[in-house]
Simulated scan of single mutants.
Amino acid sequence: MMKTFLIYAYSAILVLGSLPQLRQAKKIPDQPFARKAKSIYRTPATVSRRVIEKTKSTVTVSGHEKIPDQPVLFVANHQGIFDILVLLAYLDKPIAFIAKREIKRIPIISKWMEQIKCVFIDRSNRRAAIKVIDDGVESIKAGQSMVIFPEGTRSKGTNVQPFKSGSLRLGTRAEVPIVPITINGTYKMLEEDGGRIKAADIELIVGDPIYPEQYQGIKHNQLASDIQEIIINSID
């Protein structure tokens, strides 16, 4: 447990140390946002990478060259709590997430999330959830790529739970490429050992983009199923 405590403490120090950069980020004009995103993304990415490195984990990325040079919707499976840090650190593209409303209570981290145009969802409020989709579409149209986890919760293993199709509307309404992302191994860092942080070998696999002309006319349920199958096959 000492290693786990030290890593949490190290993470807290890094987050506190990002306050000067956060103040600077707030001063950068939102327009054009794509330019702002590149400037402010370095700090969340660097903090995330240092935390992953502190755990002594290794991350292997394949297929990075497939990522289009434009805003996209990344669709990923969700094995563990470290998924977000791995994506921030190693995807090498400014990204935002749909996050639970409760995260807004976390100092500094929530402010960084606001800066990179994350959107916060109250899952108990259906009307608010619809607005989250609208906000997410606006973020993508402004130039920010976004990541969704259609399983809705962590699988804590290699099994991929059924994908919910609703959040795919972020991509289809914004009319941007949808890129499958397979995450494998992050559950070993925390969830596998009862909350103790340990090193793991992690794979991040970028799938072939699905462009608007390919998914137009396909129902969202079918699209979700197709992407889930791509990710399952990558894990196997």
Rank of each mutant, 00 (worst) to 15 (best):
A96M: 05
S110N: 13
A99D: 00
L87E: 15
I108S: 06
A96S: 15
W112S: 05
W112A: 11
P94I: 09
I109K: 09
I103D: 01
W112P: 08
D92C: 03
W112E: 13
K93F: 07
D92I: 00
R101H: 13
K93R: 14
I84M: 08
A89N: 06
K100N: 13
R101M: 13
I103R: 01
A96G: 15
L91R: 10
I106H: 04
A89W: 10
R105S: 14
L85R: 02
H78W: 13
Q79T: 07
A96I: 09
P107I: 09
Y90P: 02
I109Q: 07
K93A: 13
R101F: 09
L85D: 02
D92N: 15
L88R: 02
L85W: 10
L87G: 00
F97G: 10
A89F: 09
K100M: 11
H78D: 11
F82V: 04
L85F: 14
I108W: 07
P107V: 12
I95Y: 07
I109S: 11
E102D: 14
R101N: 14
V86W: 06
K111M: 12
K111V: 01
L91D: 11
K104F: 00
E102T: 12
I103G: 01
L91G: 08
P107T: 10
I108E: 06
L85P: 09
M113K: 00
I106C: 00
V86D: 08
I109W: 14
A99N: 10
L87C: 06
I84E: 08
I98C: 02
I108K: 07
I109M: 12
L88T: 00
Q79H: 09
K104C: 03
I81P: 00
K93C: 01
I95G: 10
R105H: 06
V86A: 08
D83Q: 09
L91P: 07
I95S: 04
R101E: 15
F82T: 01
I98P: 03
I84H: 08
W112T: 08
R101S: 14
G80M: 03
S110H: 08
A89C: 06
L91T: 13
D92Y: 06
M113H: 04
I108P: 08
A99S: 15
P94L: 09
K111L: 15
L85K: 00
I81Y: 13
Q79M: 10
G80P: 04
I103H: 03
E102G: 06
P107C: 06
I108C: 05
P107Y: 11
Y90H: 14
I81C: 01
K111W: 15
H78T: 08
D83F: 05
R105W: 11
L87N: 03
A89Q: 03
M113W: 05
I84R: 02
Y90Q: 03
R101T: 03
L88M: 14
V86K: 04
L85T: 02
R101Y: 13
D92P: 00
S110K: 09
V86R: 01
I84V: 15
P107Q: 07
H78Y: 12
